[in-house]
Nucleic acid binder design. Structure first.
Lengths: 227, 227
DNA sequence: TAGATTGTTAATCGATTAACAATC
DNA sequence: TAGATTGTTAATCGATTAACAATC
C-alpha cells in the first residue's frame, strides 16, 4: 500500500523540487553501498550521519515519493534501493549517443560508471572526416550527417553534446529535430530547446571557476583570522 | 568608491551564498560575449532577458560585491568583466595537476576552455607503469610517488582527481597531505577533507541520472495530459 | 531638469528543520 | 506493552522577487 500511495502522488504530478531530485542519485549511491555491505536496515538518523544531511530532510525527501519506511523500524535497504532504481529509471534502459568524438566525447564513451546505471552508449558521431570511421569503445564513429537516419532506426533517448562551443546550437537543433528528448550538454553555452526536451548541463569551466573562487575566499578568510 | 565599498564588504566576510557563487561564472560568460560583440553598456533589465534571470536577482547578486553599476546608466561591460575576473580569480594564475591519466584525465588535460580561464595544467600523474612516461598534452606523465616532491617544487593550487573510485580517498589524503588546498573531484564519492581544503565535485553519473529522471517525468506528464 | 536604472530595504516564496501524532 | 522511528504538519530559515528612494 505504501507503493500505491507513492504512485498516486506521482500521478498527481506533485512537483518535486530540483533540490530533491539532485539528492536522489546521492541517496542511490549511499544505499547501494549499504546493500553491498550487507546492511539490511537503516534509519533516517543513521543515514543522516553517514551523508551529512539532516534526518528530517531524508524523511521529507523520501516522503515526496510516498515514503519507503516503517515506523519504529526504519528503511529496508533492499526495498529502498529498488524504489530508487525505479524512480531514477535505472531499469528503463536508456540509450545514448555521443555527438563529438573529441577527447571528452571519447572519455565519456568509455566511462564505465555510466554503463552501470542502465545506460547504453549505442552511437558516436563526428563531423571530422579524419575521425569518422575510427573506433571508440567498440563503436565505429559515424558522420553527423547520418544522425537522423540512426535515430529513426534506433531508440535513442539522450544525445551527449561534446562539440566545440560554436557548434553546440546547430547540433542541438539537429538532434532535437530528429526527435531526441534529452540533451546532456557539456558546452559552456546555454541551450534554448522546445518545452518537451530536457537539458542537463555539465559546465566544467564554471565548476573549476567556482573552485577557484572558493580557494581565494578561504585564503582570505585565513588571512583575516590572523589580523 | 564603488570599489572600496566592495572591498570593505568582502573583508567583512559577508557570507555569499553558494547560489550566488554558482551564478558568477555564468555572468562572466555572458558579459564576455557582450564584450566580444562590442557592447559597452548593459542594464540589469536587458541582461535579465538574455539570461532568463530576474533583473532584481542580477542587481542583488552584484550588490553582494559592492555593486558595479551606475544609476540611470546600467553597467559598463568592460568594468563589469574586469571585476568578475578579479572576483573569480582568473588573474590569479591557478596551477593544476591531474591525478589519473585515464580517458577523463587526459580529456581534461586537453580541455582548451579551462586554459582560457587563467588555469594552467602543470603536471599529470598516474599509478600505472604503462602510462607513466607517456605524453599528455605536452607533459610527461609522472608516477604518483613523485607528487609530494612535485608539489614542494611547484606552486600547485588544485588537484584534479580522475582516478578509480576505490583510489579517490587515498589519493585525496595524499595530495591534501602535500599541502594542496583545492580538489576537483570527478569520482562519485564524497570526500571528507580538513577545514582548510575546498572540494568541488563533478558527479557525472549523478548528472546523467538526473537527466534520466527528468525525461521520465516529462514523458509521464505528457501521458497524463492526454488522459 | 526629466527619465532611467541602480543599490537596497521590505515582502514573498520555497526549502530546510523541528516537533509530534501515528504506528510498527 | 514500551521504545523507536516513521510520515507529516508547523516553524524557521534563506533565497528570490518586488518596490522604491537615491542618483546618474
Amino acid at each position: 500500500m505504501i507503493n500505491d500511495k507513492g504512485k498516486e502522488k506521482m500521478n498527481n504530478k506533485k512537483n518535486i523540487s530540483d533540490a530533491v531530485i539532485r539528492r536522489l542519485p546521492r541517496y542511490y549511491r549511499y544505499i547501494g553501498e549499504l546493500k553491498k555491505n550487507n546492511i539490511h536496515r537503516i534509519s533516517s538518523k543513521e543515514l543522516s550521519e553517514k551523508m551529512s544531511i539532516t534526518a528530517s530532510q531524508i524523511r521529507q525527501d523520501f516522503s515526496c515519493f510516498g515514503g519507503f519506511g516503517q515506523q519504529g523500524l526504519g528503511y529496508r535497504v533492499d526495498y529502498l534501493y529498488d524504489e530508487l532504481n525505479k524512480i531514477l529509471g535505472t531499469d528503463k534502459g536508456f540509450n545514448i549517443i555521443i555527438i563529438g568524438a573529441g577527447n571528452l566525447g571519447r572519455a565519456l564513451a568509455n566511462y564505465e560508471r555510466i554503463k552501470n546505471r542502465g545506460i547504453k552508449i549505442i552511437g558516436v558521431f563526428d563531423k571530422n572526416p579524419n575521425v569518422i570511421g575510427t573506433e571508440v569503445c567498440g563503436l565505429t564513429v559515424l558522420s553527423i550527417e547520418n544522425i537522423c537516419e540512426f535515430v529513426n532506426n534506433n531508440k535513442v533517448d539522450i544525445a551527449t553534446l561534446t562539440v566545440p562551443r560554436d557548434q553546440v546550437k546547430p547540433m542541438a537543433d539537429l538532434v532535437v529535430g530528429c526527435g531526441i528528448k534529452g540533451l546532456w550538454n557539456f558546452s559552456a553555452k546555454e541551450l534554448v530547446v522546445p518545452e518537451h526536451v530536457v537539458v542537463e548541463n555539465v559546465h566544467l569551466s564554471d565548476s573549476i571557476m567556482v573552485l577557484g573562487y572558493k580557494i581565494i575566499q578561504k585564503a582570505e578568510g585565513a588571512q583575516n583570522e590572523k589580523l
